[in-house]
């Protein structure tokens, strides 16, 4: 039963999000959790683009940048509520993705990788150079979302860290629900079909260009919302959010955890957000060990962490 598998995945994710705080040694871990969920949202979008549709992007941090700076700038310049600014960012990212996706999605493989890379670099350069508006490389403050005080007034009192843990956790779950819906839907099947054989997908009537573009726009909106949440949570943002390194980080998390699997990519986001924290005890060897772990996982678990583990469990069971 496919339907129950989707629900099972969502239930497991929701239980993990809800119960994890019981094991937190300190309040600091709420923040780590929220960072995992923010990344988890972005990588879920990349599962749609890379895992379902088979199209690579090395520039999705560009959309995270658009989402983040929409929240940083729109309240001041347009007088928009930060929540609406987040929506504006998502619409803007979707629109930009639609515009640039039309020409660049004709490219394949590493040509597409380089073109999207260029887009990401373009966004981060604009954010860094238009200092009068964006604050430049030093970054910029972001307005308070205000939802936490609204919740407090109706009797739900949360610390800042707890509030963002809950807000990002729910966002990530909603994102996972939507991506899992897509997976088993007519559009999702068509996306996965064109991933495996474009020519066969065309011959059954799939409008390949249009569907690739849909996947690109969807994943851009995910990245944008993730950037917005990060900005609102930190109350501060720098152009690094749109930087090349962030794009690479997101793709790495997705592939590391399991590119075709929503919970896999989220596990990848969790592992690669937590691991550097856990490895700080190794001091100067931290990056060495992190690099080694990543190489070993990819050599011995090519499908990524979660799909490989599931396959092994099934094989034994």
């Amino acid at each position: 039963m496919r339907l129950s598998q989707k629900h099972l995945t969502l239930i497991v994710l929701a239980v993990l999000v809800a119960l994890a705080p019981a094991f937190f040694p300190s309040n600091f871990y709420y923040r780590i959790g929220a960072l995992i969920f923010v990344n988890g949202l972005a990588v879920t979008g990349l599962v749609v683009l890379i895992g379902f549709a088979g199209q690579i992007s090395l520039g999705h941090a560009g959309f995270a940048g658009i989402g983040a700076y929409a929240c940083a700038l729109a309240p001041g310049y347009l007088g928009l509520h930060p929540g609406l600014a987040m929506l504006l960012g998502a619409v803007l990212s979707g629109g930009v993705a639609w515009l640039i996706g039309r020409p660049i999605l004709r490219l394949k493989g590493y040509y597409l990788a380089v073109a999207t890379l260029g887009f990401g670099i373009l966004v981060s350069m604009v954010l860094a150079n238009e200092a009068k508006i964006t604050g430049g490389p030093d970054g910029r403050e972001v307005a308070e979302l205000g939802l936490r005080s609204a919740l407090a007034s109706i009797g739900i009192g949360l610390s800042n860290a707890q509030f963002w843990y809950a807000a990002t956790g729910l966002s990530m779950l909603a994102g996972a629900w939507i991506a899992l819906n897509l997976h088993d839907s007519p559009s999702g099947r068509a996306l996965r079909a064109l991933h495996d054989s474009e020519v066969a997908a065309r011959t059954v009537g799939v409008d390949v260009a249009r569907l690739k573009l849909s996947a690109f726009v969807i994943s851009a909106v995910y990245a944008s919302l993730s950037g917005s949440l990060l900005a609102l949570m930190n109350r501060f943002i720098t152009p690094d959010v749109a930087g090349f390194l962030h794009s690479i980080e997101l793709v790495t998390m997705t592939v590391f955890g399991g590119v075709g699997s929503v919970p896999g990519a989220i596990l990848g986001a969790a592992t690669l957000t937590l691991l550097p924290q856990a490895l700080t005890v190794l001091q100067q060897y931290e990056n060495l060990i992190l690099g080694l772990i990543m190489m070993l996982v990819m050599i011995f678990m090519r499908e990524g962490l979660l799909p490989s583990i599931m396959r092994r469990l099934k094989g034994k069971g």
């Binding site: 819906n181 007519p186 559009s187 009537g205 849909s214």
Partner: peptide, 9 residues
């Protein structure tokens, strides 16, 4: 095939 939005939701 149908609207992508209805598939997403």
């Amino acid at each position: 095939r149908g609207p992508v939005l209805s598939d997403l939701l």
